[in-house]
Amino acid sequence: MKKIVAIVLLLGLTGYGIWQALAAEQQNRKAGLAVGDIAYDFALKTPEGQQIRLSDLRGKPVIINFWATWCPPCQKEMPDIEKFYKQYKDDVELLSVHLTSQDRRENLSPFMKKYGLTFPIVMDEKGEVLKLYNIQTIPTTYIIDRQGVIRKKVIGPMTYKQMQDIISRLP
């Protein structure tokens, strides 16, 4: 009986040690743009004036998509993003960053109507988040896990199937 208690105690202490090490690793992650980094936090407003902060979305996976209305590859991926959003909006947060520093704000509403977009869109009117995330090509998409860690970066348009595959592999 003493051996069983000792084994259970040893297993419990080992498990606790592993849990503490993982928690410390998570806290020591740096903010950045590489896979494995904590995604840089930012806050932007929707066209209606509601502020959305990336860190407030933790607890669910987040897809951050950087795009503009004038961008043909962005236009190509919008139907797939909308389809994904409708299917997964209860399980995944979608943060669509409209680069209004390169696109006139008045183009957004007609674009949303044309493509039937219902997902949340925030506006980067000063290009601050564009610079923070070093966006060189649009569309660019970051996939972030429940803890705010970047798990994938995709440059170019994404398909519904790609989004499904990536999200299904998140821890």
Rank of each mutant, 00 (worst) to 15 (best):
D90N: 14
I4R: 11
R146K: 15
L130K: 09
K45H: 10
W19T: 08
Y160W: 05
T69D: 01
K83T: 02
L99I: 06
L13Y: 10
Q27F: 13
P61N: 01
F42M: 06
D124F: 03
Q75I: 03
L10F: 15
A68T: 04
D103F: 00
Y88C: 10
V129H: 02
Y85E: 02
D41F: 07
E77T: 06
P73G: 01
V129L: 01
G32W: 12
V97E: 05
T118S: 01
Q51S: 14
K2A: 15
F111G: 03
R169N: 15
Y88A: 13
Q136M: 14
D91E: 15
L94G: 00
L10Y: 11
G15Q: 10
K86V: 09
T137M: 12
A23Q: 13
G49P: 08
E125Y: 08
G156V: 05
T118V: 04
E25S: 14
V97A: 04
G148I: 08
N134A: 15
F66E: 01
D103P: 05
K3P: 07
D90Q: 10
E48L: 10
A68Y: 02
L170P: 13
K114Y: 04
Q87M: 12
F42H: 08
D145Q: 08
I81M: 14
W67H: 02
K60Q: 03
F66S: 02
D90L: 09
I138Q: 08
T46M: 02
G15M: 06
S168H: 11
K131F: 12
R58I: 04
Q51W: 11
T140A: 11
K131Q: 13
K76F: 09
G36P: 14
R146M: 09
T100K: 06
T140F: 12
K152N: 12
W19G: 06
P79R: 03
G36E: 04
F42P: 03
I81R: 09
L94M: 12
Q51K: 14
W70P: 00
F66K: 01
D37N: 13
T159P: 14
L33H: 10
L57G: 00
Q20F: 13
F66L: 00
R29Q: 09
V129R: 03
I63D: 04
N28K: 12
C74T: 01
K45Q: 12
K86S: 10
L22C: 07
E106D: 03
L9E: 07
T140V: 13
Q26V: 11
L44A: 08
V35D: 06
Q50S: 11
E77A: 05
I81N: 10
P72T: 00
S55L: 07
I144L: 10
G116R: 00
E128D: 12
W70G: 00
M112F: 00
K76R: 13
I38H: 11
D165A: 13
K113W: 01
T69K: 02
W19N: 11
K114W: 02
Y142F: 15
M1D: 12
Q26D: 14
S101H: 15
K3Q: 14
K30L: 11
Q20R: 15
S96Y: 02
E106G: 00
I167S: 07
V5D: 05
E48P: 00
I64R: 00
D91T: 14
K83D: 08
V154S: 05
Y115P: 05
I121S: 01
K161C: 05
